[in-house]
Design a protein around this nucleic acid. Structure first.
Lengths: 139, 139
DNA sequence: GTGCTTGCAAACATTTTGCACCATA
DNA sequence: TATGGTGCAAAATGTTTGCAAGCAC
């Protein structure tokens, strides 16, 4: 069994929810995704699981911190969160759609200090940059 | 006429789209909003304008940079962008729902340096922090 | 006057719910 | 075997579209 799948079932057990075949299938769909997916893409890519169950479980995954959601237009996109993917943020080119992943230590530090200043306890954070990539600025 | 409304019609004219009563009404709804609103809240709060026109114009506003959109769960929320509001980000308490606005110079600088490093030209950016506010950590 | 905008109504898509049945722990 | 999870079907929401009429420029 793959390491990710083991980690996944551990997270479910840790939260005392059942490890079911449907949840596995949905998780595998997310694992195999080459980019963040819309809900209906996830439904399509998990044909053996009912729509309703996909929705119920995507909501569960978000609560348990297994997934993260971001926005493209008015459409929410979901991808796996840590510890299933490296921690990162996105920089999206609005011309060609290319999505660059960002990992930046200093950025994380600044966010930490803002949060501390407000006595806030952070559970997650999202940073999305939008603009034109180097290539599209030229052409 | 209020300054904001003048600024708004200037933006429309600058992009060569008509200044119409519907667009004014929708803009006023956003101006008066005490927090970011869902699409259907905007529809409800702008009863004299047809749903379809609200959607069409919210899409237009987003394109012209008049509004910004963020995500709560799977629901997109819209609020006015600069120059109609001060530049800020959000820190949301997942227990009480309180939303704190963040303005932080250092944060903006770090983002700027990341973007420059990738030869990216930024048109907009979004930072969303989620966790527990000071009060909810205690109770 | 011309072309962009609107309202209306219908189509379409997405998300949620209730309930009986089934599987996991 | 008790509880929680699932599929199914229907309902509720949310979003988009075509078209004729109206308004901004």
């Amino acid at each position: 069994m793959s390491l990710d799948i083991k980690k996944f079932s551990d997270v479910l057990r840790m939260h005392k929810v059942s490890v079911t075949a449907s949840r596995m299938k949905i998780f595998e769909t997310l694992l195999q995704a080459e980019r963040p997916l819309t809900n209906s893409e996830i439904v399509k890519r998990t044909p053996t699981v009912d729509r309703a169950s996909v929705y119920r479980n995507l909501e569960l995954f978000a609560e348990l911190g297994i997934t993260e959601t971001m926005l493209r237009g008015w459409t929410p996109l979901t991808e796996l969160a840590e510890p299933f993917r490296a921690h990162h943020h996105h920089m999206t080119c609005e011309s060609c759609g290319r999505m660059i992943e960002i990992e930046d230590h200093e950025l994380e530090e600044v966010l930490g200090s803002i949060v501390a200043r407000h006595n806030f306890k952070l559970t997650k954070h999202l940073v999305e940059l939008t603009g034109l990539c180097a290539q599209c600025q030229v052409s």
